[in-house]
């Protein structure tokens, strides 16, 4: 590892290995966890359990993939969890209590989520507020509305169409996996291959620069709100359908889990870079932690502790990993 060794020999040095490990920390953690769990619990590696994990992770992943766009474009939104729960309740009320056609219910759900996110965007953009604080407040508003319109009761009697989205299978694969796949492909292509994606990342990377380059920031922020809103609504449909009722507490902790999954997956908090597949891995990681603790019959309060610890570890890896990578970059610059 001396500076004098010829370049060709260094092509696959320990440097590259470290770099790979840091960039794919979520996958590495997931792999380690899976190996450990497969030894500790005989039930872990069964098809039934794994499908269950994926099914549970899919809601988080649908949110997370939308959030990857939001975060990498330099925005922050803590209200998405509450908004998802509120949307679920609106869908359930329209579907179960009023008897509106399920397709219209879903459209209404999309409308509710999109409106909520656009409202956040409007307030942030118009009054130049920090999104972090503002969405903490609007999240509270959405949660309040959810309790008001539901009257504090979870809403059951969901129609079969909605249940199908949360519970049904096509070719023995859960419906939400298809939805997730569509969103995953959509977002990957959007961020990697389109002008809009590049512009969004530029906004996250350097908002002032993006403005000077003639990018219409306000318009793009609204488009991002619409996309995130659509993801939130789909997540709400799946959650409601899976439980066959609208859960009032469905949104609690969702925003935190989503952010954690996105950041563990390699999308930095400050934006400018997006890692969509990483988000998927991050979601699986969080879900496997819960699943593992369940299998080991650990008190569910420990789940929160474990999740918190993992998030702390992920953030440390994120910040320190960036530092280490920067040192590598300095080195290649010096060359």
């Amino acid at each position: 590892m001396e500076g004098s060794s010829p370049k060709a020999e260094r092509k696959f040095s320990s440097q590259d290995v470290v770099k790979f490990l840091i960039q794919n920390k979520a996958a590495v953690l997931l792999l380690i966890l899976c190996v450990v769990l497969s030894f500790v619990s005989p039930y872990f590696l069964t098809a039934k359990n794994l499908i269950n994990v994926v099914r549970q992770a899919s809601v988080l992943a649908i949110m997370g993939i939308g959030f990857t766009l939001l975060l990498s474009s330099g925005s922050m939104d803590l209200s998405v969890g509450d908004l998802m729960a509120m949307t679920g309740v609106v869908i359930a009320i329209l579907d179960a209590k009023i008897g509106v056609h399920p397709v219209l219910c879903m459209l209404a759900g999309v409308l509710v989520s999109v409106t909520g996110l656009c409202l956040n965007t409007f307030l942030v953009q118009t009054f130049k507020l920090p999104g972090f604080i503002l969405t903490l407040a609007t999240g509270m508003v959405y949660q309040g509305i959810l309790w008001l319109i539901s009257g504090g009761q979870s809403i059951s009697g969901i129609s079969d169409t909605l249940k199908f989205i949360g519970q049904g299978e096509i070719f023995r694969i859960p419906v939400q996996i298809y939805l997730l796949a569509v969103i995953l492909i959509f977002m990957t292509v959007l961020l990697r291959r389109t002008e809009f994606g590049r512009h969004s990342l530029a906004m996250g990377g350097n908002l002032d620069s993006a403005r000077v380059c003639g990018i219409n920031i306000t318009r793009n922020k609204y488009i991002i709100a619409v996309i995130m809103g659509a993801c939130t609504a789909v997540a709400a449909m799946v959650t409601t359908g899976r439980a066959a009722s609208a859960q009032l507490t469905a949104g609690s902790g969702t925003a935190m889990d989503t952010i954690a999954a996105v950041v563990i997956g390699g999308t930095p908090m400050e934006g400018g870079i997006a890692n969509v597949p990483g988000t998927l891995v991050g979601c699986l990681l969080i879900q496997v932690i819960s699943n593992g603790l369940n299998l080991l019959d650990v008190n569910s309060n420990w789940h929160k502790v474990a999740k918190g610890v993992i998030i702390v570890v992920a953030i440390i890896l994120d910040v320190q990993g960036t530092k280490i990578l920067n040192r590598f970059r300095m080195k290649s610059k010096a060359e």
Binding site: H199, A202, G205, N206, D208, S209, A210, C213, G272
Partner: peptide, 16 residues
């Protein structure tokens, strides 16, 4: 502050 997008590649910075 208003020029480069630090996390972007040279290419993406030029073509933006």
């Amino acid at each position: 502050r208003k020029g480069i997008i630090a996390k972007f590649s040279v290419a993406s910075n030029i073509s933006i």
